[in-house]
Amino acid sequence: MDKLDIVKSRATVIFKDNIDTDILIPKNYLKSTKRTGFADALFAPWRYDETGQPVEDFPLNQEVNKGNQILIAGENFGCGSSREHAAWALQDFGFKVVIAGSYSPIFYMNYLNNLKLPLVLGRAEREALIDANTEITVNLIDKTVRSGDLCFAFEIENVYREKLLKGQDGVEEILQYIDLIEEHEKKYGK
């Protein structure tokens, strides 16, 4: 997987709280046994009408938002089901960064584990970015978000920052400690 350090893009804005994973990708798209192919499913309940046609004014369908790699949302993003398909759908659609006020803990890890950035910014900062309505530069190296004259610092756990910057494979990272794992298994029996 590709590492992530700097992302430059305009943002698509779906500024709602509690966007749950049933909205990000409904269950009828979960029957795949693959990790890819979910781009068309992203936000399906809001993106398509009852006949399956795109809803014109929904942000993902607007021409102006085409190719955006950043999504700005509200609080408690990705709540509900643990389905990693939500992270895969965002990734397949092209979103490398989500900027929200807070995340559901399971989604947060799922997005990171696909080497994508769940970035936390306060409401005022997100509103300023939305008002600026121009290209945003997310820089994971110096932990800043810039857009026009705006510059906001953000926080992220150091280990996850490192993981994204290096593009680390999860299992490899754990296997470094295989001796300690075996020791634990011996100590606590089978």
Partner: peptide, 22 residues
């Protein structure tokens, strides 16, 4: 606790996974 599929794979391969203590 509930986990995502990447973490399912971590546990399959190593019986371990990273977590930040809440």
């Amino acid at each position: 606790f509930g986990i995502g599929t990447s973490e399912v794979e971590d546990v399959f391969a190593t019986q371990c996974m990273w977590q930040t203590k809440p």
